[in-house]
Structures are given as structure tokens and as C-alpha cells.
Design a protein around this nucleic acid. Sequence first.
RNA 1: UCCCCGGUAGCUCAGCAGGUAGAGCGGGUGGCUGUUAACCACUUGGUCGGCGGUUCGAGUCCGUCCCGGGGAGCCA
Length: 437
Amino acid sequence: MFSPEIAPVVNIADLPQYEGQAVTIRGWVYHLRSSGKVRFLVVRDGTGLVQGVLVKGRLPEEDFHQFDRLGQESSLILRGQVRAELRAPGGYEVEVTGLTPLHICQNYPIAHKEHGVGFLLDQRHLWLRAPRQQAILRLRDELARACRDFFYDRGFVLVDTPILTPTACEGTTTLFATDYLDRGKAYLSQSGQLYLEAAAMALGKVYCFGPTFRAEKSKTRRHLMEFWMVEAEAAFYLLEDILQLCEDLVRYLVLRVLERRNRELEMLDRDTTLLSKVSQSFPRLSYTEAVVRLQTEGVAITWGEDFGGDEETRLSQMFDRPVLIHRYPRQIKAFYMEADRDNPELALCVDMLAPEGYGEIIGGSQRVADLDILLARLQEYHLPQEPLEWYLDLRRYGSVPHAGFGLGLERLLAWVCGLKHVREAIPFPRLLDRLYP
RNA sequence: UCCCCGGUAGCUCAGCAGGUAGAGCGGGUGGCUGUUAACCACUUGGUCGGCGGUUCGAGUCCGUCCCGGGGAGCCA
């Protein structure tokens, strides 16, 4: 191994700063080519790719011949001279003066060509090494950080909600059950909202960010069994405040990514002019208006029905920005949503649909603040009261109007990246009938 | 749970009207002093998803099961 004093260990992304200098690079073989006495070795290190050139006679004979043993993804350390080179991909290359393989491997399963989705998902642990997957993961990281920055800057306090819960939050979706020692069943959380409401009564403005579990047998491009959701809740907020807050959040997130992760978006061939439309205000439509617009376009839907994937797609394609649909019929929404005073048939709620057919990325609402109404709702929705006594307490002791929303990270990321399926938006997707790796 | 499509070499696929298995990539060997998914030559590689049926004969036709993909319902 080379001592760093002779040649500093450098990230490939930083190579231009080291032009003309000797450097050490640690990484993996991305690609190999040989022309006999001149050999090319494309190396990746997680920050980028660089071509190493081995010329017979210009490095120790033994190191030169190590090249023959290398296969794709063999790990290695190499030392060489950085130089600008127009013929090299990226404009810079390294003239290799020393090559030390760390681990030789052959038959790396993922070649530089088209592969089927099933195969790639089985190889997800290796697929992550692909430049495209790296770009997606970096964008995910940026969005996650940006969420935290957004809420921190606005005085929201991070409150971690439990993952193991005694009951369903909404009583609608199917939950993953697990044994809670000898105390019966526990369920994996499908939302932190109810707990967040309690925290909002303590701290005012709060949010949580963590994994969420839905045991629905959904098999579509928008569904995961396990996904990450950022949820916000604020005391004294009304529906209008939530509309503004979630619009501000999505605008902030997208602009942040445009500003800091342009390289990754470029690698994904994302058309960023579409994303930059978020700087304009988002259209707002009531559910009723949305139904009318759909009907005008010939979609068979009647007032009172929930939007399916098709309807969401059609609606989101009507605009070049995310659109906010508010005040759905109460019947098709969750028990905790406050009714509209002007029309009690309507819930004070909002869904944000991403453009380009990506569909729902946010769901939010103003919550029922009155104890008696909430009790009636539990009956109406056939929900047990006893396990929700603590939730009812929030209406017994200093109840205030409050509202919140949840944003699905993978759906947002899929839209930002222009992915065809959310399964690429999470490092290790959990899908129907797929729990490996 | 339902509907549609698929399962042939490690991978991506072709295989005509039923006649006994192919290509490219990858792997291996050799060649090449500037390659860009390099190229050239040679080579390795298969219970054609399982079971049953029709037939002289099934990768091919029929039935059934398994697995995968897409969608519906439901949701972020």
C-alpha cells in the first residue's frame, strides 16, 4: 500500500484540483479496456469516475500485470499523476504509477447493459453501485436534509413518534402485526399523526420523519410496503395554513435540489425546466371543482367518489405545477378530519398532486377539535374508543384547532427524479412478495 | 382478491407452421501503444419454471400449479 505522505488520498470528484500532482485513489473497477501495452481502467469511488491509464514500462512490471487479474468491481488502490486529457471521459485522467488490488473478483452479476427489473431488485445490494442509483440516493439525502432544515428554520420541533403502536391510526388500511412479547399484538405504525397531535399540544409546532408501514396488497408503481413520511402538525393552524405550509415546503424542497444537486439531476436526464415551475404559486381546486373539470374532460366520475389512479393522473396532467385539491367529501376521508362549517358534507382536507402524472404526494387536514364530534365519529367509523382514550384527552384538556399533513418521501423523490416507479426511490424497497435483500 | 403480460445459457433476448437449442453481453485463452459499452480470433456455457396430457415426436399445442412484471381496489 502507498503511504499518503507520498500521494494524498483524493476523492475522484476533487481530481481537477490536483492537476499535475501525484494522488492516491481508492475504489472499485468500473470498466476495463486493454490495447496490449496501453491499458485503461475506469475506477469509481462513490464520488465519481476516472480513467486510469497503464502504459507498459511506466509503472512496475508487477503492477502492470495485476491489471489482467481484475474484473468489474474488483477493489483497488492506485497511485498516479492527474492530468487534463480531452480523450478521457470527464476531461481528466490518471497516469497510473502504482496499482494494488485489494480484492479480485470476476463475474460481477450486473453488466453495463440492460437488465430486467426482477433481476436488478434481487441484486439491489449491488445495484446501488450503479451511477444512476447513486444519483437517486444523493437526491434522497438532499431532500431529507432539506425537510429538516425547512421545519427547523420555521420553529417546528422534531418529535419522534413510535413505530410499534397498539392500534390502527386511521382504522382503514391493513397493518403489519407483530407479537409484543406476551402482551398480545403490536402494529407497525402507518402514520405518526395521532401522536404528533399530542406533541403539538405540548410544543405548538412539531414534525416527525420516519418509516411508515402499510400491509396493503398494492402492486403499483406508487406503492411500497415500507416508506418514509415527513409529517407536520401545528396547534392553532387551520386548513388555509396547511395549504400554505405544504406549498412552501414542496417549493423549498424542489428549489433546494435544483440548486444543490443539479449534477445528479443531469445524470438522470431530468428535465429541470419542469421542476423549476414550482417557484410559481400552486393551483388550488376544491374537490367539487376537480370533479367538474374531470367530467368536462370526459372522465366518468360522479360527485362523492374518491379519485383513483386514473383520475389523479388526469388532474395532475392539467397543470405544470403541483396542484392542491381541497375539501373532499367527508365520507371518503378519515374520521379525524374536521368538517367544513359552510358545508358539513365536506372535510377540511387537502391532497397535493405532483405534475406529470405522479399523483398524490401529500395528504393533510384540519383535525376535529371537539370531543363530542370526535366521539360521534368513532361510532360512525366503527372504531373502538378505549385504545384512543389518550387521543380523546387532547380534546378534554385545552383543545384547540389544529392541522397537519404528511409527505411521502419516495413519491416526491420519484417525481423529482422522473422515476417510473417508487421502488428506485428507496435503498431497499419492500414490495408485495419481495423482502429480499 | 381480480384482470393483463411473461418465465429458453450468469444477464438481455431470438427460436417460423410441432422435427430434438441459437445470438449478443459476461467468463476463459491469445493478439493489439489511446481505448470510450474498444476491437479481432478461439473457447466455455442449457433439467427450455414444475407436474400432467395430446402426439411417432413438445421450447413450441392443451390443462394445472409455482414464480416474476404491469394494472385495479386502497393509499403517501
